[in-house]
Nucleic acid binder design. Structure first.
Length: 688
RNA sequence: GCCGACAUAGCUCAGCCGGUAGAGCACAUCAUUCGUAAUGAUGGGGUCGUCUGUUCGAAUCAGAUUGUCGGCACCA
């Protein structure tokens, strides 16, 4: 006689040994019974058909809540998508098929490649399958039986999953695995899958899910590139058609904000084939870049940093010492004088234009190889190591807008967000163990203040801990990881743990921003490093006269200038706040007669003394032979904060008609009024 | 790097089954001198990413290659 507590606090008692979620839903109402797709029992998601024999708090889940929607997506991918793929591609092997934010996916290995053209066919077949009056029933089988079944039907990935579950002890009641059997109206078995569930009990309940098979991609079995690559089929799934359309519309809108589109369109930068992964900054984009670095220099100066600049090309010997050579050689650009001027006797090879690769490889060890600087830290240590350092010099905060080059995997490149040549707003804080806490706190506060100034409030923090491949003993790692966690707490930052993802020399905090299509990018970072100073002999003399290696804090606020500007473009949709806008004001003479006055206005704005990194107010005059309306349209498309229309009236009165980029017409204003306003926005880093 | 796809004027795109390229916007010139999101006319501009092949003939077919896009893996 289980007593069931409902979400409103009321308690219902049911006769008999047990009661199912379906029966509870029916006892509440026919509407709920129809809408029910799963049940939460004492906070745990379960099938509606599972008997509940103890007293429990429950919540019936429908398509309207997270669990219900998730269950529908889950059944769709595990019971319907899989069958459609089987029908169209016999002998397909199945891997996993979980739900994701906006739908679901399924990893499959088909005997012949599935192409994008097949997606509509798969979707059509799914709709046919959905029309069948099938039920989905949960059963508990012993692992050996499940394994034998999947062996017999040629599903090796499933066999592996069974063995994993057993090895990890993930068994129901300590001895079973749950399988879901799809049956037709006549009771015949249509399909059997290993799954934790829950699933909806009937296809009827599944038909309300608005779905589409949206795309396909490669994905490695178990996420390991050493494993076989499978085909991942992505689907979108929402509670109703309206939500699906709303999502697709939102995506389409978001794509219009893509920095790869807006950037070139606004004349900020371009990329081209001859320089893959590198940015050609145009004047407008470089203005933003300059404003940002100018701003950061002032912040860093106020925070007690010194700025340095270090070489672009450094002998591999230094990186062998630091450990970067072993860890990252494959992703570095390596150059050598000897390659350009090979060490071969020209007379001996007079018949050859070039040295053969074979001859070259023999010489590799002898070659004087240099890395194009992939990171700044070893160079900063070289500056630190000039002369003898005392505890009185610490903490030493050494900053550099350091240009780094990394030979990233081709498929990883992405607009200006992931490039092979970029500038870090990097700094290394050389300090004592005792200074880790206060310095980390200071940094977190500095970062928060910069992000706030730049209008970013929506970021999250990850604490990445020791990876498998690392240097330094575990005691140091304990210390470093605890230090970072404490610093985070002290600065009032919430963080999520990201196990095993730290750098090879130390754990790191990652400050992550999201772009317009929902991708996450690491921007800021703070890393505690006990290892590099030892390897590169960054010592200081203590008050007691002993020599100790210092601690290095690696830190960046924006991360890569390129990446950050990419995020900035997408977040602002190209409507930069006045202080960053490449062109802050566009003067629009209505007719030729006012061009002279327009130029005069522009000259006054330029010479206004408003302090931007590039001089006065950044202003242009549109003296073209176009109608005013068209000039406004073009100004609007360029997202210029201020358009200053000058006609006969304004020229006579010495005013400008101010139009904002949101369309607001502020009417005729004296120039002094405008200057005050712009000055306020530039100083306050505000938007127009 | 891996899987799938794409690559035609500055931009957006058309060009079916192979017979040596079109539109709109942008740009230039001329006319117009205009009050808050596109005045009109005329004109210039591409050999169809690159290379190789098939063919009497290729933007159109095949192979390779470079770049890009969507994911995966990677990200000091």
């Amino acid at each position: 006689m289980p007593k069931i507590t409902l979400p409103d606090g009321s308690v219902r008692e049911f006769a008999g040994e047990s009661v199912t979620g379906m029966e509870i839903a029916a006892s509440i109402g026919a509407g709920l019974a129809k809408a029910a797709v799963a049940i939460e029992v004492d906070g745990k998601a379960q099938d509606l058909s599972m008997p509940i024999s103890h007293d429990a708090s429950i919540k019936i889940a429908t398509a309207k809540d997270a669990l219900g929607l998730d269950t529908l997506r889950h059944t769709m991918t595990a019971q319907v998508l899989t069958r459609a793929v089987f029908d169209l591609f016999p002998n397909t092997q199945l891997a996993i098929g979980p739900t994701v934010d906006n739908g679901f996916y399924h990893d499959v290995l088909a005997p012949k490649a599935i192409s994008a053209d097949d997606l509509p066919k798969i979707e059509a077949r799914m709709r046919e399958i959905l029309a069948e009056p099938n039920t989905v029933v949960r059963e508990h089988w012993e692992p050996a039986k499940v394994e034998a079944y999947f062996e017999s039907v040629g599903q090796p990935f499933k066999v592996e999953l069974v063995r994993d579950a057993v090895a990890r002890g993930e068994l129901v009641e300590g001895k079973y695995l749950s399988v879901y059997i799809q049956r037709g109206a006549d009771g015949s078995q249509k399909y059997l899958d290993l799954c934790r569930g829950p699933h909806v009990p009937t296809f009827e309940k599944l038909r309300g899910l608005a779905f589409t098979i949206s795309s396909l991609a490669g994905a490695y079995w178990r996420g390991d590139s050493a494993n076989q690559q499978l085909t991942r089929l992505y689907g979108l799934g929402f509670a109703n058609a309206k939500e699906l359309e709303a999502y697709q519309h939102m995506r389409a809108e978001a794509e219009k904000r893509d920095h790869r589109k807006i950037g070139p369109a606004l004349g900020l930068f371009h990329l081209q084939e001859e320089a893959p992964g590198q940015v050609f900054w145009h004047p407008a984009g470089w203005t933003i870049y300059t404003e940002l670095t100018d701003y950061l220099r002032r912040k860093l100066d106020a925070a007690g940093y010194v700025e340095v600049n270090t070489p672009q090309r450094v002998n591999k010997v230094l990186y062998q010492k630091s450990g970067h050579w072993d860890n990252y050689r494959d992703n570095a650009f390596i150059v050598s004088d000897d390659l350009a001027r090979p060490v071969v006797n020209p007379e001996e090879h007079a018949d050859k234009q070039h040295v053969t690769l074979g001859a070259l490889s023999k010489q590799m060890d002898m070659l004087d190889l240099h890395m194009l600087k992939p990171m700044n830290c070893p160079c900063h240590v070289q500056i630190f190591n000039q002369g003898v350092r005392s505890y009185r010099d610490l903490p030493l905060r050494m900053a550099e807008f350091g240009r780094c080059m990394r030979n990233e995997a081709k498929g990883a490149l992405h607009g200006i967000m992931r490039v092979t040549s970029f500038t870090q707003d990097d700094a290394h804080i050389f300090c004592t163990t005792e200074q880790i806490q206060p310095e980390s706190k200071l940094f977190c506060d500095l970062l928060k203040s910069v992000y706030a100034d730049l209008g970013f409030s929506d970021y999250f923090v990850k604490l990445s801990t020791r990876p498998d491949k690392r240097i330094g003993d575990d005691a140091l790692w304990d210390k470093a990881e605890n230090a970072l966690a404490d610093a985070c707490r002290n600065a009032g930052l919430e963080f999520q743990l990201n196990p095993g993802e730290g750098a090879f020399y130390g754990p790191k905090l990652e400050f992550v921003l999201r772009d317009c299509i929902g991708r996450d990018w690491q921007c800021g970072t703070l890393q505690v490093d006990f290892n590099m100073p030892v390897r590169l002999a960054a010592h200081y003399t203590t008050a007691e006269g002993t020599r100790e290696p210092c601690v290095m804090l690696h830190r960046a606020i924006l991360g890569s200038l390129e990446r950050f500007i990419g995020i900035l473009i997408e977040n602002s949709e190209g409507k930069f706040p006045t202080w960053l806008a490449p062109v802050q004001a566009l003067v629009i003479p209505i007719a030729d007669g006012q061009v002279a006055y327009a130029n005069e206005v522009a000259a006054q704005l330029r010479g206004s003394g408003i302090a931007t990194a590039t001089g006065g107010v950044r202003v242009e005059v549109d003296a073209s032979n176009e109608r005013m309306q068209k000039k406004i349209l073009f100004g609007q498309q360029r997202k210029i904060p201020y358009m200053l229309v000058v006609g006969k009236k304004e020229a006579e009165e010495g005013t400008v008609a101010v139009r904002l980029r949101d369309g607001t017409d502020l009417g005729a204003k004296p120039l002094s009024w405008l200057l005050e306003r712009v000055r306020g926005e530039v100083i306050g880093r505000k938007d127009s």
